[in-house]
Design a protein around this nucleic acid. Structure first.
Length: 687
DNA sequence: TTTAGGG
DNA sequence: CCCTAAA
């Protein structure tokens, strides 16, 4: 039948007979094979949401550009910090603050005033290429601390320069500050409109202090490496197994194999860009009641072209959001439990902490804002009163942003994390923002007061004045829907989910959330040895320092599993044990893998998945025999439907044909064997 | 632990 | 991919 070509001969070999691989014989017959260690993920480190956020924010700041990819390069694999139990209630702000501080301090360096820009700096440094490991570590440490310290601010520090908070002034505002400034007044109007500016917000506005986008390297979101490599190796006529991406035996000598070579057109296409990437859809729960708006994320990761598109597609499928807050907790959408872990929590934005982290620099209206940037806070707050119109120029270096909790599946990619964070921020902003003014740590509520009346005057010290962003809860953003999330990074196998967070989930209530996370920052660095594709997020290699730090709060620095690899995947089991049910991230089979699978099945037959696994995917830790079996199932299905109906990376028809052929062949073989009745008997029956 | 299938 | 019944 269809086997003619390549298969025939091999089939003969195998099926025919002695081929060791006996066609699906009861396992009992085959006996137990070596015990295989489960590919379970080994423990890793965890990272805390805040840090994550901070990290992400930092990244965003860095440019919002595909930093993800970059990371892989020289980037420190991952820094992870964990802070747990950071919960805040409005009423208890202060307390919380203290609490928070505690935590932070525990970690060590903590300067609450730390602001993103600084972080950014730190990051840059730590990311410096070629940095020696140690230094890097330290840097990371530092970074971690920084981040942790900043968590409260959630990475949303907006540098702003504005002359009074009047629209006009805003317009004239300088720098990125404009964006923010303008945002303020219009926030309520609808954030989406200014969505693009969001990035500005996130950008290192502190022009003065900030360094460049460290995101150096290249990183296209795509990293074909994986595929290419594999494909290449496979295509090799018959390279050493080890070398080959897949250890598919090609012992059978048919040269026909060549035909199978790599006919596949390149297919590093972005199938994953499709909205259907269900893998890690994170959900956003907004604790605060803010209307959520989708925002164009044009500036997102460069690589995630479709990001915005997808993002816009709301989908409950994988997203879940809760808006707790005083209002409903039950607004929770119905969702499959599967997705429980995909969630993002955004705590209410509103809480002005007594501690104003907001940095404000006041200047005389005349002062040139530009040059001042460098000076950081140097500029004293001043009021220039020439007449009634005393203009006060404020340079707001950052806003104090309450806290944002994000809960996202560990399997989520960094990209999705970014997105998630962005969403959270967006949601908040979308709901309308208000600016809170803190004077001497106290919130100035009376809007009618004049600055003078409020005591905000020249004598004020910069530190005495602060601004905070607060959600405009007046509206009921009841349900915010998170857009379907996409892991734009995941376009390729190589691209692995970078970040994983174990949502302590359920346990979270209102403002309180425990989040465990893991963050892997290096997507690229996959050490594939041979055919190991999975290494990417091989949780395996990760040491398990976490245990010690059972307590989520502990800061855990993730060490790169392999310096060279750069890939880091911290896994922190500590916290996520309960919710073990993390759904594995979706890792579509590449054509190369499909081919390997086909090859193996052709030889071994269906029903011997374990062997297939061993044979062709031994190094692919993430492919279990069940996966292979499932894949085969889908392949068979795929092969039987019209090409138009197929989705995902297209599989060469040639392979599909082979799939059908092999399926048919083995089914037949099976049929023959099945009936316990001897062949003869069967024959008779059939006749 | 593997298989085999349904979900 | 997950979940499970069976083997």
């Amino acid at each position: 039948m269809v086997f003619q070509k390549r298969s025939s001969s091999e089939m003969e070999l195998c099926g025919g007979g002695q081929v060791a691989e006996m066609p699906r014989v009861p396992k009992s017959a085959r006996g137990k094979r070596s015990v295989r260690k489960k590919e379970a993920q080994s423990p890793g480190q965890m990272m805390c949401a805040f840090d994550l956020l901070a990290t992400v924010a930092g990244k965003l700041l860095d440019e919002g550009e595909g930093s993800l990819g970059n990371m892989s390069t020289g980037a420190p694999p991952a820094l992870s910090v964990c802070a747990k139990d950071v919960r805040v209630k409005q009423e208890q702000c202060d307390e919380e603050m203290k609490h928070f501080k505690h935590e932070v301090t525990d970690q060590d360096s903590c300067n609450e005033s730390a602001i993103l820009p600084h972080i950014v700096v730190q990051r840059s440094m730590s990311h410096a290429p070629n940095e020696d490991p140690k230094a890097k570590s330290e840097a990371q440490d530092k970074e971690s601390s920084m981040i942790s310290c900043t968590k409260a601010e959630l990475g949303c520090n907006f540098g702003v320069i504005a002359d009074r908070w009047s629209p006009e002034s805003v317009e004239s505002g300088a720098f990125t500050g404009d964006a923010v400034a303008s945002l303020m007044p219009t926030a309520t109007a609808g954030f989406h409109k200014i969505a693009p500016d969001m990035y500005n917000l996130l950008d290192p506005m502190d022009v003065d202090v900030k360094p460049p986008p460290l995101v150096s390297s290249d990183s296209t979101g795509e990293m074909p490496l994986y595929d290419d490599k594999i494909r290449r190796s496979i295509s090799l006529p018959r390279g050493p197994k080890g070398a080959a991406g897949y250890a598919v035996d090609r012992d059978y000598d048919d040269d026909d194999d060549k035909s199978s070579g790599c006919t596949h057109p390149s297919t590093t296409t972005n199938r994953d860009f499709k909205p259907n990437c269900t893998a890690e859809h994170s959900r956003v729960r907004k604790l605060l009641a803010c209307k959520y708006r989708k925002v164009a994320t044009s500036r997102m990761h460069k690589s995630d072209l479709s990001y915005s598109d997808v993002e816009r597609k709301p989908s409950f499928r994988n997203k879940k959001m809760h808006y707790t807050r005083q209002r409903t907790q039950r607004t929770t959408f119905k969702r499959r439990k599967l997705f429980d872990r995909h969630a993002v929590l955004a705590s209410e934005f509103g809480r002005a902490n007594g501690k104003g982290n907001t940095k404000v620099t006041g200047r005389n209206s005349r002062a040139a804002s530009l040059e001042a940037n460098k000076g950081t806070n140097s500029m004293p707050f001043q009021k220039s009163c020439g007449s009634n119109d005393c203009h006060v120029k404020l340079r707001i270096k950052s806003f104090k942003v309450p806290e944002l909790l994000v809960e996202i599946p560990e399997s989520a990619t960094v990209g999705s994390l970014k997105k998630t964070v962005l969403e959270a921020v967006t949601a908040i902003l979308g709901g309308g923002l208000r600016v809170g003014v803190l004077h001497h740590g106290k919130k100035v509520r009376d809007d009618t007061k004049t600055l003078m009346q409020a005591g905000i005057g020249q004598d004020d010290i910069l530190d005495n004045l602060g601004f905070s962003l607060e959600p405009n809860c007046t509206q009921n953003p009841s349900q915010v829907q998170a857009p379907e999330d996409i892991s734009f990074l995941e376009t390729i196998d190589t691209t692995e989910p970078l970040a994983r967070i174990a949502p302590a989930d359920s346990s979270s209530k209102h403002g309180e959330v425990d989040v465990s996370q893991e963050l892997a920052l290096t997507p690229l660095a996959m050490n594939y040895q041979g055919s190991d594709h999975d290494s990417v997020h091989s949780p395996v290699g990760v040491s398990s320092p976490d245990k010690a730090s059972r307590n989520s709060r502990a800061l855990v620095l993730v060490a790169p599993s392999d310096p060279n690899a750069g890939a880091v995947v911290p896994a922190n089991k500590s916290k996520r044990s309960p919710e073990q049910g993390q759904r594995r991230i979706r890792r579509p089979f590449s054509v190369a893998e499909v081919e390997a699978l086909v090859l193996a099945v052709e030889k071994l037959g269906t029903g011997r998945w374990r062997d297939v696994k061993l044979r062709a995917f031994e190094n692919a830790k993430h492919r279990t025999y069940v996966d292979l079996k499932d894949k085969w199932k889908t392949l068979v299905h795929t092969a039987s439907i019209s090409p138009q109906q197929r989705r995902g990376e297209p599989v060469p028809q040639e392979l599909l044909d082979r799939v059908l052929a092999a399926q048919a062949y083995w089914s037949q073989q099976q049929a023959k064997l099945q009936p316990k009745t001897p062949p003869l008997a069967e024959a008779r029956l059939l006749t």
